[in-house]
């Protein structure tokens, strides 16, 4: 019979409960554990998934916790934002799968550990807006403006609530990665060896592959240039650029290709967001809006970046 308490730790190894539990144990690190941790990191980075433990027996569950700890050390040893971001996303998605099937008691225990004080209201869940803002995923359907806000609380459906929990987990996993210097001497060598194996998985920076006919609005040109130099764009910059590319007729694949230059590129998330933009056919933010985003760089006098290209086409 599996101990349900320990099972909770294995499903949610980033909780304080799990941390307390594992630190009270004497840990033996075998070659098998190291290999599993390597696999966990590789799968996270290449396929966005974390392999799950299959057999629900106490021994594998405990081992799962150790594998988690070692995986984190490997990611820290890699010392690269691309890897840590991808790893954190995969870990949070893994947890989300368990959350979807989880019982109320465990959910309660989990959100308490994550300091997310949801309140139940019928079929909905309420969360204070400040908490919400800190843990909302950057996608447009989660912008405050698109949410139902009343009396300081955001009303969320169950699946939106789970998405917030997932985001909080992602942040926690990424923020609490151990410092590279803090990897214990005993297994430092093994961990660094694993990191060396994984390092070549870092994608090479892509060069310009998408051709633009006509002229591009100067503000959007700057964003594109930044992307090609693998700079990290702000959320509003990505959002505006994606709409712009869609509006000037770029296909989903072309847009994804352009965004793959982003250092924290995640195919799943970006694909989802680009599809969202295409399906909702969002209108391009005006120059005034872009000014508030701090994205306007010059008075080109076009009122909306889309008009910049149209004007150019007419002259042709």
């Amino acid at each position: 019979m599996v101990d349900n308490v320990i099972l909770f730790y294995a499903k949610y190894p980033f909780t304080q409960y799990a941390k307390d539990y594992i630190s009270s144990k004497e840990i033996v690190i075998t070659q098998k554990v190291i290999e599993s941790a390597e696999e966990r990191v590789i799968e996270s980075i290449t396929n966005n998934i974390v392999p799950k433990f299959i057999e629900f027996v106490d021994e594998t569950i405990e081992q799962e916790l150790i594998i988690y700890a070692i995986s984190r050390m490997i990611v820290s040893a890699l010392d690269n934002k691309y890897f840590s971001a991808k790893y954190a996303v995969a870990e949070s998605k893994r947890a989300r799968e368990y959350i979807e099937k989880e019982n109320e008691t465990n959910i309660h225990k989990l959100v308490k550990d994550l300091e997310l004080n949801f309140e139940k209201e019928g079929n909905y869940f309420l969360l204070p807006f400040a908490k919400y803002l800190k843990n909302s995923p950057g996608s447009p359907e989660y912008f405050l403006i698109n949410k139902e806000l009343s009396n300081g609380k955001i009303r969320l459906t169950k699946s939106e609530k789970n998405r917030i929990i997932e985001e909080k987990i992602r942040q926690r996993v990424e923020k609490t990665l151990p410092k590279k210097q803090k990897i214990p001497e005993v297994y430092k060598l093994q961990i660094e060896n694993s990191a060396l194996k994984i390092e070549p998985l870092l994608p090479k920076p892509k060069t310009k592959e998408v051709n633009f006919s006509g002229d591009i609005a100067p503000c959007m040109k700057l964003l594109l240039d930044d992307l090609y130099q693998n700079k990290n764009l702000s959320h509003h910059a990505r959002w505006s650029l994606a709409i712009y590319l869609h509006k000037i007729g770029k296909s989903k694949e072309e847009i994804l290709n352009i965004f793959s230059n982003s250092p924290d590129f995640n195919l799943n998330i970006t694909e989802y967001q680009v599809e969202y933009i295409i399906s909702k056919d969002y209108s391009m933010p005006s120059c005034t809006t872009l000014k508030t985003y701090g994205l306007c760089i010059t008075e080109c006098g076009c009122f909306n970046p889309i008009k910049y290209i149209k004007r150019f086409d007419k002259n042709e």
Binding site: F129, K134, F143, L144, I145, K280, S283, P285, T292
Partner: peptide, 22 residues
């Protein structure tokens, strides 16, 4: 709250990005 979160608050109040279709 940092800039990003404050911007969301101010955009909510200003109605930035509101559209009928959503």
């Amino acid at each position: 709250l940092k800039r990003k979160e404050r911007r969301e608050i101010v955009e909510y109040i200003n109605g930035t990005g509101l559209n009928l279709r959503s």
